[in-house]
Amino acid sequence: MSFEPKILGIACNWCTYTGADLAGTTRLKYPQNLRVVRVMCSSRINPSFIFRAFQLGADGVLVGGCHPGDCHYNTGNLYARRRLATTKKILEFAGFEPGRLRVEWISASEGNKFAEVVAEFTAQIRNLGPQAKLKIQE
């Protein structure tokens, strides 16, 4: 069977989630490998969500937030940027593929960008193959 990546998207309510909506309403096509969870702000994302997602079988995690400066709460994504950068470094030093975690700033009007990023990231994860390192083996 060919490999269909499972990708978790975590999108902030005000920008990326709305952007995803826009992609939908403008009928843009993007791979169906993404399952999106909405959070109020990218700064809501506890790094453990990401570790846990990989443990529960995600092949990739895509985090979406407002562009720096545009966060609905002014500075949430500026904290998130530092935090998620650290998450990546930790995954990398553990020997995990840091490429399985991607952070993108996508505004409410960037339906196109959303579709492009999902397509690109899905292709990248497809290349990396199934994620087996953190996934809990049954």
Binding site: P68, G69, L78, Y79, R81, R82, R83, T86
Partner: peptide
């Protein structure tokens, strides 16, 4: 550092 940020990060 993680409860802080710089706009220029």
């Amino acid at each position: 550092v993680l409860v802080d940020f710089r706009v220029e990060d």
